[in-house]
Amino acid sequence: MSGRFFIIALHEGGRFREETWELVSFARRCGAADPVMMVLSDEGAIEQLACELAHRTGLDVVGLAGSHLRGYSAEAYIRTLVPFFRDASGKIRIAAAHTSRGIDFAPQLSAGIDACCITAVEDAGEGTFIRSLHHGRFRAEVRADRAKVVVTVLPGAFAPDDIAPGNPGKVGIVPAGDISLSTLSRGTRAPVHANMGLTRAEVIVSAGRGLGSGENIRLVTMLSSLFPKSALGATRAVCDQGWLDYSHQIGSTGNTVSPRLYLACGISGAVQHLAGMKNSGMIVAVNTDPDAAIFRVAHYGIVEDLTTFIPLLVDRCLKRE
């Protein structure tokens, strides 16, 4: 597929997000020979960010600069990017990571430039994009029917591209003009649920909505007490129900863990949950649904009802001692 390919590199606190390098692999997978890297920031930081991109990727970089880009807001990004792409002709593909910011501005960018928008993309076909749906049970192959396409790519779907040796790409800094925004950015607040116990644990017994009730937390507590250095984890669904507090949440908006053993009980395996635990040493999943996505990352899977299986497991473990 011909046409131009742009990658929007997202950064926070002067550092690029890791997904940036994955997007370079994605561009290659789409057959783009020379994707162009784009970075948006205020005048003070743009030069350094753009040069870092050019060095790391060996690709040409466009840096868009303006004082309205000091803090992040979707409005700041859209009002900068729309004029840049609106009048461009021919086939254009624009990729950003499917992160909290990517999904915040990408759909609005697409609307402003009469593009098609495809989110949570995990692969590319022959001129098509493949995305996951129905809790990761199926994938949809989608074709864009517009010359311009904006896609957001699932973090982790592509391996990061190797750092390019030697030959940095060309850097061009483009002033984005004076844009006054109606959105006021007021900084960030630190996470409320960082949990050192979870990051230190060797074994995490983790609970999902499949527990059925808050009362059944006792089952995972019982199971975790079999292991010396263990801690309780949970999906967002469990914390939203108030069965455990948010300090136990594992996933993209919670804690990231990599224990030696992760025991997933009644967890479907949504991408946002996998993001926080897929690097665990051994993953064991207990779920009633043989097609649950969690079984695709688990080293060992057990298709059972956890309300009867966990008591049985604990029982047999104690009896054999």
Binding site: S110, C116, E122, G125, F138, R139, E141, D145, P290, H299
Partner: peptide, 25 residues
């Protein structure tokens, strides 16, 4: 419409791990 659905596919990678079989015990 800006896009069309080509088809629905099964998940990408098959099962990597092992499903433990037998009775519950």
């Amino acid at each position: 419409p800006t896009q069309s659905l080509v088809c629905i596919l099964p998940p990408a990678q098959g099962r990597q791990g092992e499903i433990i079989e037998g009775t519950a015990a």
